[in-house]
Structure formats: C-alpha cells, structure tokens
Simulated assay, not measured.
Amino acid sequence: MSTQRAKKSNPAAAGKRAPARSAYSKDEIREIFRRFSVQRPEPKGELEHTNPFTLLVAVVLSAQATDVGVNKATRALFAVADTPEKMAALGEEKLASYIRTIGLYRNKAKNVIALSERLIADSGSAVPKTREELVSLPGVGRKTANVVMSMAFGQATIAVDTHIFRIANRIGLAPGKTPDQVEAKLEKIIPPDYLFHAHHWLILHGRYVCKARKPDCPACVIADICKAAEKTSEMPAPLAPIG
C-alpha cells in the first residue's frame, strides 16, 4: 500500500518527466558549431528570392516540398509577380498554373493570394518584421516566420524544418517531440555568437551529410563528437580541433 501511495505522489509516475537534456557538454556544443562555422563561414538559404515578399512566398510554397522544386516554379512566377499587388492581380487560378509542380499547390495558391491581399490592406505591402505579425498571415507558421525574420531582416532565429528536427533528435543535440520543443532547446544551448547562422548550418548538414536514409558519416566534420546511436560503418579518424 505504501508503494502505491508513493507512486501516486510521484510526478514521474503521473507522466510528468523532466525535459530531455542535450547529450553534449557546453564545450562539445561550442566545438560542433565552431566546426560548422569553419566549414561554411557564410551559409546561405537555398530558396531563390529577390526581396522579403518573394522570400515569404517561397518559404510558404516550400512546405512539404524541396527547395529545388520551389525554385524551378518560382523563377517564372517572380519574373511577373514580385510584389503583393502583382501577385494579387494574378488570382488563384493563374498563380496555380505557375506552381502546379509543387505539392498542395492549390491550397498554397489560395494562401499566397490571401496573404498578398492582407499585406496590401494592413501593412502598405510591406512584409512584417515580427513573428506575431507574420504568423497571422494565411499559410504562415512559426517555421516560415523564423526563416523570413532571419533571412530578410537579420534576426537570430531557429527555423526547425524536417532536417533540423531529425538531426536534433538523431544525435541527441536537442531532443524534442515537437519542432517548438527542439527550437526552444537549440536557442538555449547554442552559443550566442553562433546563433545567427546555426539554423542554416544545421539545415545544410542535414540536407547533404546527416541525411534521412543514410547519414554520410565519413564526410561529417563532427563525426568524432557525434553521439548518435547508429552511424555508418565507415568512419573517419577523429578530428583535431580546427584553428
């Protein structure tokens, strides 16, 4: 009976668990991002755009799609519609004809026209700079807002896409069950002087090295620090600190 009472009074027994911590020490985390900074001193997002508005549209279109696929569709689109006014003037059907190769293109066309009209009506066609204003736009979630804030306005944000979510959990850097949990943990553990470029480093690392199906561990600059449970069999020799 006493055991049962103890279980009832224990928060862990009621399903309340302390948040998972990073598997890495502060020094290891700093070394991870220092190596990323040496590998890619000025990382860039791969969505093509010409201004904050076309960036916003490109990121909205990139949901459940590849950057390569979005770029192929938007080159012709942005040549004729690079402002909210021009985009709204196209209308849903004409816009859909430009982006039909992108997944969920009809719903995305509806959202892009709606957000264009909102920008014209509410902000003089300017793209908002705050997360609260951005996420109020049709089709814009927290990840999209974070990308725009970072790439268009130079704010240090962590946009957790599928690559970052996978890496954070796979290697134990910032484990979490939701993108918001991973974002909060990454913002807490990444050294401030590396925070601005961190999401691009992680995205590119996930896209080209720590891939979903088979991570390319021999090409990984943090392979000797990585604490992933499984790695590809062929591993590089441990790296000495760079610099």
Score class of each variant (00 low, 15 high):
N10D: 13
K16L: 14
S22A: 04
I29R: 07
R35D: 01
F36P: 05
G45H: 12
F53A: 02
L55I: 04
A58Q: 10
L61H: 09
G69H: 13
V70S: 05
V70Y: 09
N71Y: 07
A73K: 06
A73E: 00
R75H: 04
R75F: 14
D82G: 15
E85Q: 13
K86H: 04
G91E: 00
E92C: 01
E93H: 12
E93T: 13
A96L: 08
T101H: 15
L104G: 03
L104W: 14
Y105G: 08
A114T: 12
S123H: 06
S123I: 00
E132M: 09
L134M: 11
S136W: 02
S136D: 07
L137H: 04
G141M: 14
T144V: 15
D161T: 10
D161Y: 12
T162F: 13
F165T: 00
A168S: 12
P175V: 06
K177I: 02
D180Q: 15
V182L: 10
E183C: 10
A184H: 11
K188C: 03
D193T: 03
D193L: 13
A198S: 15
W201L: 11
I203E: 00
I203S: 02
I203G: 02
H205L: 09
H205T: 07
R207T: 05
A212Y: 12
D216H: 10
I222L: 03
K227S: 02
E230R: 15
T232N: 03
P236R: 10
P236M: 11
P236D: 01
P238V: 02
